[in-house]
Design a protein around this nucleic acid. Sequence first.
DNA 1: GACATGACGGCAG
DNA 2: CCTGCCGCCATGT
Length: 111
Amino acid sequence: MKSTDTNFFEDVYQVVRLIPKGRATSYGLIAEYLGSKGSARMVGWAMNQAHAMPDVPAHRVVNRNGLLTGKNHFQTPTQMQELLESEGISIKNDQIMNFESIIWSPKIELL
DNA sequence: GACATGACGGCAG
DNA sequence: CCTGCCGCCATGT
């Protein structure tokens, strides 16, 4: 066991798994919810390892602009958009349309 | 041990 | 409005 438990990553995966279908959240919101407010990069890093975790819909996690910044890390660059559109989320130019309406804040929804 | 990078975010110019 | 820089924590070289 290292000083830095993977608890942080586990928490990230836990929250991501709670994201309801047809919704999306941002790295910053997750980071803030976990208490590491401002360290959205860590959430992104966790997502990088998310591929090793089952049932982790990383495609529902986008940046605060609703832009699919991590699409390039999926099996295929189009996988993320395909999955989101399959859930009823409209995407235009790699960006979620009406993102503010589908955004899912753990600190609010899970409150 | 130090430097550079990364699926981000906020603030300053 | 758009561009650029810094801060955040962890990992890799």
